[in-house]
Protein backbone atom coordinates (compact mmCIF):
# COMPACT_ATOMS: atom_id res chain seq x y z
CA UNK A 1 0.00 0.00 0.00
CA UNK A 2 1.26 3.50 -0.87
CA UNK A 3 1.55 5.84 2.08
CA UNK A 4 1.68 9.65 2.00
CA UNK A 5 4.00 11.31 4.50
CA UNK A 6 2.16 13.98 6.46
CA UNK A 7 2.68 17.67 5.66
CA UNK A 8 5.30 17.02 3.02
CA UNK A 9 3.57 17.01 -0.38
CA UNK A 10 3.98 20.06 -2.65
CA UNK A 11 0.98 19.07 -4.85
CA UNK A 12 2.98 19.21 -8.09
CA UNK A 13 1.19 16.36 -9.88
CA UNK A 14 4.28 14.50 -11.10
CA UNK A 15 3.15 11.26 -9.47
CA UNK A 16 -0.33 11.70 -10.95
CA UNK A 17 1.11 12.04 -14.44
CA UNK A 18 2.98 8.73 -14.35
CA UNK A 19 0.43 6.63 -12.45
CA UNK A 20 -0.69 4.04 -14.99
CA UNK A 21 -4.11 3.53 -13.41
CA UNK A 22 -5.07 7.05 -12.29
CA UNK A 23 -5.05 6.07 -8.62
CA UNK A 24 -3.91 9.42 -7.26
CA UNK A 25 -6.36 12.20 -6.43
CA UNK A 26 -4.88 15.70 -6.26
CA UNK A 27 -6.50 19.03 -5.35
CA UNK A 28 -4.98 22.42 -4.61
CA UNK A 29 -3.56 21.22 -1.28
CA UNK A 30 -4.75 17.68 -0.80
CA UNK A 31 -3.45 14.36 -2.11
CA UNK A 32 -4.84 10.88 -1.60
CA UNK A 33 -4.23 7.42 -3.01
CA UNK A 34 -7.21 5.41 -4.23
CA UNK A 35 -6.04 2.13 -2.73
CA UNK A 36 -8.64 -0.03 -4.51
CA UNK A 37 -7.33 1.13 -7.89
CA UNK A 38 -3.59 1.19 -7.07
CA UNK A 39 -1.57 -1.70 -8.47
CA UNK A 40 1.49 -1.08 -6.24
CA UNK A 41 3.87 -0.48 -9.14
CA UNK A 42 5.80 1.99 -6.94
CA UNK A 43 6.80 4.38 -9.74
CA UNK A 44 5.07 7.28 -8.00
CA UNK A 45 7.44 6.73 -5.06
CA UNK A 46 10.49 7.02 -7.31
CA UNK A 47 9.38 9.97 -9.43
CA UNK A 48 8.34 12.21 -6.53
CA UNK A 49 11.00 14.95 -6.40
CA UNK A 50 10.73 15.37 -2.63
CA UNK A 51 10.21 11.83 -1.40
CA UNK A 52 6.66 12.14 -0.12
CA UNK A 53 5.45 8.64 -0.90
CA UNK A 54 6.47 5.29 0.49
CA UNK A 55 5.24 1.73 0.51
CA UNK A 56 4.31 -0.35 3.51
CA UNK A 57 4.93 -3.61 1.65
CA UNK A 58 7.23 -4.82 4.36
CA UNK A 59 4.57 -4.45 6.98
CA UNK A 60 2.17 -6.48 4.84
CA UNK A 61 4.73 -9.23 4.45
CA UNK A 62 5.12 -9.34 8.19
CA UNK A 63 1.36 -9.62 8.53
CA UNK A 64 1.25 -12.60 6.13
CA UNK A 65 3.90 -14.47 8.08
Amino acid sequence: MILVKDNRCDFCGTCVAVCPVDAIELREADISIIHDTCIDCDICIWVCPIDVLSSDDKKEEVKHD
Partner: peptide
Protein backbone atom coordinates in the same frame (compact mmCIF):
# COMPACT_ATOMS: atom_id res chain seq x y z
CA UNK B 1 -4.50 7.76 -22.49
CA UNK B 2 -2.41 10.48 -20.92
CA UNK B 3 -0.26 8.54 -18.44
CA UNK B 4 3.41 9.22 -19.14
CA UNK B 5 6.13 6.60 -19.05
CA UNK B 6 8.65 7.04 -16.27
CA UNK B 7 11.38 7.37 -18.91
CA UNK B 8 9.49 10.31 -20.44
CA UNK B 9 9.22 12.27 -17.18
CA UNK B 10 11.87 14.37 -15.48
CA UNK B 11 11.50 14.68 -11.75
CA UNK B 12 12.27 18.36 -11.08
CA UNK B 13 13.12 20.54 -8.13
Amino acid sequence: RTATKLRDMDSGY
